[in-house]
Amino acid sequence: MTAIKVLVTRPVAQAKAMVELLQKQGFQVQHLPCLAIEPVQLISEDGLQSKRLAMELSTFDHVIVISTNAAQHWLDLVQDYWPQWPVGVNWWGMGESTQAMLVAAGIDAGRPATGDTSEALLAHLLPQIRMHDKVLIVRGQGGRQTLSDALTAAGAKVDYAQCYQRKMPQLSALQLLQVDEFAPQAVILQSGETLENFDALLAHKPWCDKHNIVLVLPSMRVADQARALGYSVLLTSSSASNQSMCDTLLQSMLLPIQK
């Protein structure tokens, strides 16, 4: 019996772990990045803002790091100013992998045990917020305002360090040909923006029948996005972590399916 063919769409730097995890579970796997990650220019408005906030790190009560990309680019910047981490700052990582990167850098970072979403973090963090607490959210350019809105409503002062940018990737003709020949049956999409790029880049492909292609998505919010784009076979994970996405695909009993 032929194993299901899975397309991984993570950015280049984050794809290897997911590809290997799926392969260990018996899936056939192809990688095609549907999101490109680039650091912001330090001379840009966001770059200068991040630099200022890095120097002011000790003044914050809480620092929330949204993703592994945010952790990587923020740590590259802030370690130049803080050979030892300031005391009294409470760090939070969104997701197990983000938390692990912070811990590896010597930061005692927490995360909610109830999930890897903004809502789960807020349920854990809001009871700890005092009026006028300073909160720094480290993320890429753009994104949801859920955390900021809720924290501001609770009386906190919120700043953003936007230290990377997400872009549509430039794909070669060879990359596209290899995916066409692979003809995936399921696609791992770990963010809403990745879904949008996938749809723009590949929805016209013969193998991408919106009524048959299986999309594995990280949340109900992204599943709603996919539904609005016309996709109908949707598997919703409990989080965007590699393990959770892989488990969701495994639990769907898809392995016996053949084209």
Rank of each mutant, 00 (worst) to 15 (best):
A123W: 13
V158L: 05
L176Q: 00
A105K: 06
M131I: 11
L195M: 09
D116L: 11
L102I: 11
Q141V: 06
A156Y: 15
A109P: 10
T146P: 04
L126K: 01
D116S: 15
T114K: 15
N197Q: 00
R130L: 14
A161T: 14
P127W: 13
I129N: 08
I188E: 01
S172D: 13
V187D: 08
L102E: 03
Y160P: 13
I129R: 01
M168S: 08
N197D: 01
Y160C: 14
Q99A: 15
T98Y: 02
Q185I: 08
R144P: 09
L136Q: 02
V187A: 14
V187C: 08
A113G: 10
V135D: 03
F198E: 01
R139S: 07
I137Y: 12
E181T: 12
G192R: 01
V187Q: 07
V158A: 09
A109R: 01
Y160A: 10
D133T: 15
K157S: 07
M168C: 04
S191C: 02
K134M: 14
Y164H: 00
G142K: 05
S148H: 08
E196H: 07
G143S: 03
A154Y: 00
P112R: 10
E119M: 08
N197L: 00
S172V: 14
G110K: 12
Q141Y: 07
Q178A: 14
E181S: 08
T146F: 09
K134W: 07
Q175P: 00
L136I: 06
G106D: 05
A104Q: 12
G143N: 03
P169I: 14
Q175Y: 05
G115S: 07
A156Q: 15
E181Y: 15
D199N: 09
L102K: 09
Q190N: 14
L136C: 04
R130S: 13
E193F: 04
S172K: 14
L126Y: 02
Q162H: 12
L121H: 12
L174R: 08
L151E: 04
A123K: 13
L125I: 02
H132Y: 12
H132N: 10
A150C: 10
A156W: 15
G143F: 05
Q178S: 00
R139T: 04
Q145W: 12
I188V: 12
K134A: 13
Q190S: 07
M168K: 11
V103T: 07
L136W: 11
F198C: 11
A186E: 15
Q170C: 14
V158M: 04
V138E: 02
Q178Y: 08
D199R: 02
D108W: 12
L177H: 10
V103A: 12
N197W: 01
I129P: 01
Q190L: 07
L174N: 03
H124Y: 04
Q190T: 10
S118F: 13
Q170W: 09
T152E: 10
E181H: 09
G115Q: 00
L174M: 10
N197K: 01
M168D: 11
D159L: 12
Q190G: 05
E119H: 15
D199C: 10
A123R: 07
P127K: 13
A113T: 13
